[in-house]
Design a binder for these strands. Sequence first.
DNA 1: ATAAATTTGTAGCAATGGCTACACTCTGTA
DNA 2: TACAGAGTGTAGCCATTGCTACAAATTTAT
Lengths: 147, 147
Amino acid sequence: MPNRPNPFAKTRRDHADETAEDYVEAIADIEMASGSCRVKDLSERMQVSHVTVTRILSRLSDAGLVAREPYGPVGLTPRGLEMAAASRTRHETVVAFLERIGVSNATAEHDAEGMEHHASKETLEAMRRYLRHDGSAMTEEDAGNRQ
Amino acid sequence: MPNRPNPFAKTRRDHADETAEDYVEAIADIEMASGSCRVKDLSERMQVSHVTVTRILSRLSDAGLVAREPYGPVGLTPRGLEMAAASRTRHETVVAFLERIGVSNATAEHDAEGMEHHASKETLEAMRRYLRHDGSAMTEEDAGNRQ
DNA sequence: ATAAATTTGTAGCAATGGCTACACTCTGTA
DNA sequence: TACAGAGTGTAGCCATTGCTACAAATTTAT
């Protein structure tokens, strides 16, 4: 018997859900930054072809997260907005946490993008607790001086 | 323009590589724990059908990570062993780190499974630095008392 | 107002990872 | 030894996410 029973399991499902969150988050970001979101914006952001974006948007539209009309801009439904807000909060928690332990902003943004989908409620709470109670940013030097 | 340029990008590729690492790590674990690894052990561990395991093993065998013969046990090639060792180290770092900030062992194991694939070298180093320099385990109570 | 350029949609292919159903091999025991 | 049951393999289906190539629409410029 494996000594680590099956902490795995679900990890390998949910890829489609992660995609949904990433897209919804990106749409909210882009709308916020430039006023409206187009397929092109998403294909650049996600670094995939516009074809891939179109197909995924169509799935998200069926799922009731995205509002879409041919050749038009991409919008979020109320449910999409909800998901975007939750994703954003979680994303910001992970980024802030990584920076706090000394990771550069660029790396924190990059790693958070992947990690955020796997941080459970409990882990996110631990991160927030850490952010609340350890007020100082930790640089490499700080880390050396701490004890 | 999005304010977050494209920290995304690769995030959505590499799923196959993550699978490879997960399987190789699992094989090493199971061999360690029970002496030999069978398809059945993996299908239980990963909670997927034996069919899925077989197909993935065949891909990993083609990739030179896994040694395989029909109806026989599953082994790792030298390259597979290398990958398993690296994965294990990284996994243990993430688990230890999560526990250190107050996450329960069960949750740490679970979250690490997904997060470890997205922790860059820089982030892993920050975690190890934190583990080295902050010797005490942090419980929820500790967190409250710290400042 | 037209032509050119950009954007979006559609068709159709590939790889990955799920599955069920069915066939085959292996093992252990009657 | 022979058979039952457990373990594997194979066929073939589906969904997701990539892609290129080509077609249609929209926007921009002339």
